[in-house]
Design a binder for these strands. Structure first.
Lengths: 175, 175
DNA sequence: GCATCCATGTAAATCGTTACATGATTCA
DNA sequence: TGAATCATGTAACGATTTACATGGATGC
């Protein structure tokens, strides 16, 4: 899985600009994927050259012009090939967990701070996911709904687990 | 956070070879970090040149010789600088969740297959983490123990959430 | 005899982020 | 007047994976 596969998937539903794609990634995809403009725009150019998508320039009033991309039949075929290929493993990288792991080499209060930052960010993510679910539920496909339900549940559990972890750490601190 | 920070952290406890480091990453770090030999060996060379670590060749009987690396004072200082720097956001990338999200474009049974693969892998991860906890608990630092407890709890919740998700998906399939 | 573990390393390729560069419009 | 939103793009850099290359020892 790479940015190309994700972009093709987003264009399966309807045509979008690079800016729209970035917005989708920041909202509905935030739980399990991300990409910057520095990836999106060059990928769109590359895909257009390869005939997977086509570009239409749209002139807007009161807003800058934009390039809207539409998936071609070849692009749809590419996307299907991705969807039937072997599933890749999840990737998880956590700076906060790494610092917790190495906690013995710094003061416990520093580690507590790290976990509290992590907790705060998790709370924010949960809030965003819940808001998204509330706002977009009617227009979501059934699998998209399951997707966000899984995201919300997992984030809730993380919150709970982290809170317990912080409590345990604070007990150690007192010793 | 990058491979250098993680390697320095591992060497804080005691000297290790590149092979040992890979093994640690595959076991105790498996939940929140990973790196291949193609990263580990060049990073060790680079750090040695920069004076963050030193190399000792160890001749072994019945096994190939190995290079054991020891952290220097400068390396320890580097590591501390990392530990006190701002915490980076977690990164999570999930091919399985992406396919679930785009589930409307393939047969539901394909999506069920994707989630069942995901579930199977999660079960295996959980088993590994539990085994690791059982085997290494006595030699773990308190923060390392919290670290693996968090890993186990989160993986357990994921298992639960995923199982519910698959059930919901199968209800959709029947319609 | 074959798989697995031990052990190290390089080179090419891939993939991606960050910073830079630009600029109009809308709303408070 | 200043922040936020809309909108596109490039160039330099960084990080990492995959595939290649090698080879002895141990255990089944």
């Amino acid at each position: 899985m790479n940015s190309q596969d994700v972009i093709l998937g987003l264009l399966m539903h309807h045509s979008l600009s690079g800016y729209d794609i970035k917005h989708k990634l920041e909202t509905i995809f935030s739980y399990f994927y991300n990409a910057s403009y520095g990836t999106i725009y060059p990928t769109l150019s590359k895909m257009e050259k390869e005939g997977l998508i086509t570009k239409q320039s749209v002139i807007q009033e009161g807003k800058p012009n934009k390039n809207v991309f539409t998936i071609t039949e070849e692009g749809q075929h590419h996307f299907k090939t991705y969807m039937y290929s072997p599933v890749e493993d999840n990737e998880f990288k956590s700076d906060a967990m790494t610092r917790l792991f190495f906690g013995e080499f710094v003061d416990t209060e520093v580690v507590v701070g790290v976990l509290e930052t992590y907790l705060e960010r998790t709370k924010n993510s949960l809030e965003s996911l819940r808001k998204l679910y509330a706002d977009c539920q009617p227009e979501m496909s059934p699998t998209q709904e399951i997707c966000i339900q899984i995201g919300i549940s997992n984030t809730e559990s993380q919150l709970h687990t982290l809170t317990k972890g912080i409590a345990r750490l604070k007990i150690i601190e007192q010793k």
